[in-house]
Simulated scan of single mutants.
Amino acid sequence: MAESPTAEQLESVLNTTVQLSANWSLDPPTEAAGEFISLSWTEILSLFFALVGLVGNSIVLWLLGFRTRRSPFSVYILNLAAADALLLGNYFGLRMWTIVSDLNPIVLMLLWFCILNLSYWVGLSLLAAISTERCLSVLFPLWYRCHRPKHTSAAVCAFLWALQGLFWGVIVALYFLNKDTFYDLYFDLYLVQFGWFSLLTPVLGVSSLTLVLRVQCSSQRRRPPRLYFLVLLSVLVFLLCGLPWGIVDAVQLFSSSTVIPSELSRLLACVNSSANPFIYFFLGSQWCRRGREPLRVVLQRALGEEPVAGGGGRALPTPTLCMNYPEDENKMLRKGIP
């Protein structure tokens, strides 16, 4: 029987996002059950942010999925919250699993590597799609209002989930079905992912810069919508905290050197995925009002869908522009007024 690769060899091939202990092998660990595993301060903080962010994203999922009417933009936020919750939940669960269980290291590495990367790349793709669509709504308001397909948001989200699921599913299938083919094609497959990263990052930066200029111009005439600030803050947090993960993977693809420690990149990724719910509720809150508001109302206000009180205490959709005077609406749209 051919000798199985060691855990160190597999780690170098997979470029895993976790640092496994150097004495792990393909056989189950022989250490005594319940042996204490020390955690660094970065790992402790990562677990804390993962737990807090999982709660926050679960609230967003519940509100957008079952408590509010879905709009084109809320569909993106719903899927982004799902991607963040998937990343945080799997990070917390798999990290705790390594502490209290004797899981086979190879199974752990594949689960950690594929599931975490799947959720990370879906989140990056969704942010690029959100900022691009907001940019199009600013540059081409007439086209966006009149000619945008109705189910664009749902179609884009489904495509991004399917694309990343297929990519990482192929990696797992190749490993279990034919390891030789896996080792031959792994670099080519990950090179495709690097190209996707190189494409999305400039798109994210250019569209965000366009929104910044739009907000700057709008602030001279009137207060910009909260939705613009929501997109800009989410993108800014990702560039500061989420982007290092992709940069570390890109550097490891071509070199054995590391830009920042992998533990720090995981901590920043947990901060990025945990920050979005707090951004939504912070922007949607009205501090001048006394008393508590339902989180559903706060979230709708942050997404630019502030409800109007109706009969029975239920929220009514925000009234749209009157269509009796289309020439007046077209003039407003040409001036850039949403």
Results as ranks from 00 to 15, higher is better:
158 A>R: 13
145 R>V: 08
172 V>D: 05
175 Y>Q: 14
175 Y>F: 15
161 W>D: 07
167 F>W: 02
153 S>C: 08
143 W>S: 05
148 R>T: 13
146 C>S: 09
169 G>W: 08
177 L>C: 14
152 T>P: 03
146 C>R: 10
150 K>W: 00
153 S>H: 11
141 P>H: 11
144 Y>E: 09
162 A>F: 00
154 A>C: 05
167 F>I: 02
159 F>P: 00
143 W>I: 07
149 P>F: 12
179 K>L: 15
150 K>Y: 06
160 L>I: 13
179 K>F: 15
179 K>N: 15
170 V>N: 01
143 W>G: 04
157 C>W: 11
180 D>I: 07
162 A>M: 00
163 L>A: 04
150 K>H: 07
152 T>H: 12
142 L>G: 09
182 F>Q: 02
153 S>E: 11
160 L>C: 03
181 T>V: 05
168 W>C: 00
163 L>S: 08
151 H>P: 08
181 T>R: 07
175 Y>W: 12
154 A>R: 09
182 F>I: 01
169 G>K: 01
178 N>A: 11
173 A>F: 14
168 W>G: 01
155 A>P: 06
177 L>T: 12
149 P>H: 08
164 Q>F: 04
145 R>I: 06
158 A>F: 08
149 P>L: 11
152 T>L: 13
175 Y>T: 12
176 F>V: 11
161 W>A: 04
152 T>G: 10
159 F>D: 01
147 H>T: 11
175 Y>C: 08
144 Y>Q: 11
158 A>L: 04
152 T>V: 09
182 F>Y: 06
145 R>S: 07
142 L>P: 03
156 V>G: 03
178 N>V: 06
171 I>K: 02
166 L>V: 03
178 N>S: 09
145 R>H: 12
149 P>N: 14
166 L>K: 06
177 L>K: 13
163 L>C: 08
181 T>L: 10
157 C>H: 13
164 Q>D: 02
164 Q>E: 03
153 S>D: 10
143 W>E: 04
179 K>W: 15
161 W>M: 04
